[in-house]
C-alpha cells in the first residue's frame, strides 16, 4: 500500500523482490532432481555438497532478481556481468542473513528450501571453518534483527550492494554511481520518516555491509579451498562465478 511519505523508489525496489514461495518450490524441485546421485550418503561431505547446491540455485534466483530490475536492464550485459562478478557472494550472504533476520530464531536456521534446521545440528555436520562462518552469519543476523531492519530496508540494501560504483572498468560507471546515490537517498528518507525515533538507523544499517563483505570473502576463500580439494559439485554457476572472479 502507498503510505504517506514513503519514497516511491523504495516501493519500486521492494516490487523487484521475488515471490519467496515460487523461488522455494523451484529450488526444491531442482534439488530433488539432482538427489539421485547422492542418495544414501549422509556425512560432512554430503552436507557441504547440499549447501553448495542450494547456494548455486539461489545464485540463479539472484541473477533473475537483478534482471527484473529496471535500473539493471538499462546496463549493457558487460556491465551487468561486472557488477554481479563483484557482489555475487555478498548477495548470497545477504540472502541467507536476511532470511534469518525475518526467521528471527537464534537457535535455528531457515534454509532457502523452507526447511528449518537446529543450529547445533548444522554445526555438527560441517568442519570448523564452515562452522565458524555459519556462526558469524547467525550473530550478524541477530544484530540486524535487534536493529529491526524491515523488508523495505532489506530491498534497498541489496541494491546498494549490487550497484557498486567502485567496480573497475565499468562502461557506464556514472549510471551505477547515480543509482547507488538514489537508493541511498531513498533509504535515508524512508528510515527518517518511518522510524523518526531512531535518527541513526540509516547509518546503523550500512555498518553491517562491511561485515557482509568480509564474510563473503571468507566464504569465497573456503569455497576455493574446497573446490581445489574436489569437494564442490562441478559444472554450476557457483563455480563459474568463483573462477571468473579469481582468474
Amino acid at each position: 500500500p502507498q503510505l504517506p511519505g514513503l519514497p516511491p523508489l523504495v516501493l519500486e525496489l521492494l516490487g523487484c523482490d521475488q515471490d519467496e514461495l515460487m523461488v522455494q518450490n523451484k529450488i526444491i524441485a531442482h534439488l530433488q532432481q539432482e538427489q539421485g546421485c547422492s542418495r544414501g550418503r549422509h556425512d560432512k561431505s554430503s552436507t557441504f555438497s547440499q549447501m553448495c547446491r542450494m547456494a548455486d540455485q539461489t545464485l540463479f534466483s539472484i541473477v533473475e532478481w537483478a534482471r527484473s530490475c529496471a535500473f539493471f536492464k538499462e546496463l549493457k550485459v558487460g556491465d551487468q556481468m561486472k557488477l554481479l562478478h563483484n557482489c555475487w557472494s555478498e548477495l548470497l550472504v545477504l540472502d541467507h542473513i536476511f532470511r534469518q533476520v525475518l526467521h528471527a530464531k537464534e537457535d535455528s536456521i531457515l534454509l532457502v528450501t523452507g526447511q528449518e534446521i537446529k543450529l547445533p545440528l548444522i554445526l555438527d555436520e560441517v568442519d570448523a571453518t564452515l562452522s565458524s562462518l555459519v556462526q558469524k552469519g547467525q550473530n550478524l543476523a541477530m544484530r540486524l534483527h535487534t536493529l529491526q531492519v524491515d523488508r523495505r530496508e532489506i530491498a534497498c540494501l541489496k541494491f546498494i550492494v549490487l550497484f557498486n560504483p567502485n567496480v573497475k572498468m565499468l562502461e557506464n560507471q556514472a549510471f551505477v554511481e547515480g543509482v547507488q546515490e538514489q537508493v541511498n537517498g531513498a533509504l535515508l528518507e524512508y528510515t527518517l520518516t518511518t522510524y523518526p525515533q531512531f535518527q541513526e538507523k540509516f547509518s546503523q544499517l550500512l555498518v553491517p555491509l562491511t561485515e557482509v563483505r568480509s564474510l563473503s570473502m571468507q566464504a569465497e576463500d573456503y569455497l576455493c579451498y574446497m573446490n581445489l580439494s574436489g569437494e564442490v559439485p562441478c559444472n554450476n554457476l557457483l563455480i563459474e562465478m568463483l573462477h571468473a572472479k579469481r582468474a
Binding site: V63, V77, M81, L84, L237, E240, H243, A244, A247
Partner: peptide
C-alpha cells in the same frame, strides 16, 4: 585476464519473451 563466464552471459542475454 578474467575467464569469460559463459553461463552467466547466457542467463543475462536470454530472451524471456520467446
Amino acid at each position: 585476464k578474467k575467464k569469460d563466464n559463459a553461463l552467466l552471459r547466457y542467463l543475462l542475454d536470454k530472451d524471456d519473451t520467446v
